[in-house]
Design a protein around this nucleic acid. Sequence first.
DNA 1: AGATGCTTATATCATATCGATATATATCAA
DNA 2: TTGATATATATCGATATGATATAAGCATCT
Lengths: 181, 181
Amino acid sequence: MDVRTVCLGVLTLGDATGYEIRKMFEEGPFQYFTDAGFGSIYPALKKLHGEGFVTLDEQVQDSRPDKKVYSITPAGRAAFTAAIAQAPGTDKFRSDFLLAMFFEHFLPQNLIADAVDDRIAWYREKLGHMQSCDRSGWGAGPVFVNLFGQAVYGAAATFLEENRDGLVEAAGDKPKPEAAE
Amino acid sequence: MDVRTVCLGVLTLGDATGYEIRKMFEEGPFQYFTDAGFGSIYPALKKLHGEGFVTLDEQVQDSRPDKKVYSITPAGRAAFTAAIAQAPGTDKFRSDFLLAMFFEHFLPQNLIADAVDDRIAWYREKLGHMQSCDRSGWGAGPVFVNLFGQAVYGAAATFLEENRDGLVEAAGDKPKPEAAE
DNA sequence: AGATGCTTATATCATATCGATATATATCAA
DNA sequence: TTGATATATATCGATATGATATAAGCATCT
């Protein structure tokens, strides 16, 4: 799904600036299944404006760049609905951590132990964030997505906790595998 | 992790052409945590060759483009080891499906039911593929990664199976939410 | 027999995205 | 006072994506 579509989705929840959309991707509930930086968001909003899918209210501020508050138009809403009604592509999980663990025999034991511990802490932290959300005012969709995230992140954390020692032990069996090469 | 590094990783497992590396990303054990298409792999190999991290054996074939078999050099091995020894970035899960489900109220009930069913089938299929691998000759790293994948994909499939009906039911409560807008 | 599509194998190209950087100011903490 | 964080926009080079081109052999379907 391209950044333009995701921006439209955020704007169905209420008017927002590019900066605020970015924050949704960084901190809000969107962070668990999507992402985009300024370098994609600002051009996307500009293009959406050119296409008539959003309108723009420029609020002059002194001592700060003018705020550009975007609102979705009926045409934008229609375009968004059409986009998410398409059969979605496959889910993608990308992990530099798993790549490193795959090549465990290239790495010293202590580095592996630290990497797994860090990843456990990271998954637990994200999980805590998801669990601590107040879901009382949410619709069925956001709740579903939140609980899906909890299921997946929880499974990852639990797996890492249960298999950490086994991996670290295996990594210790080979004293200095590769450095001598 | 950039494509260059992942290509080096594949080449530590044995010599390969760009085409074969692609297949690893599509079908092999790498598919669950990384990805790259021809458009990234060929330029990456060209650059690695220029940097002295791989060598290249061009095998002339008739009735087919010449095969370019790449081999990793000691310098490439060192570069790869250094790259994976860096603290890895965060794991990323991207899902157009979850985006659509988040905005469930924009979609007709039957579309949601179909989308969830398709996704369950997809996760079950991938899970079956991971489970049916013969792990007997594998090292600790690949086994760890495979079982991690099973834990996560299994959790996703189970969650979807257990929460499908609830979501579909909720989607039915609102008869024609948005189309009239 | 002929058509269709898959597999092998490379490569390019327009578009999209990423990640870093630039610009300015206010505020809060060390 | 120095540095970090937050607000807010924007650009730019380097990468990555996804589609397309080329070209032959081989299997399958009608």
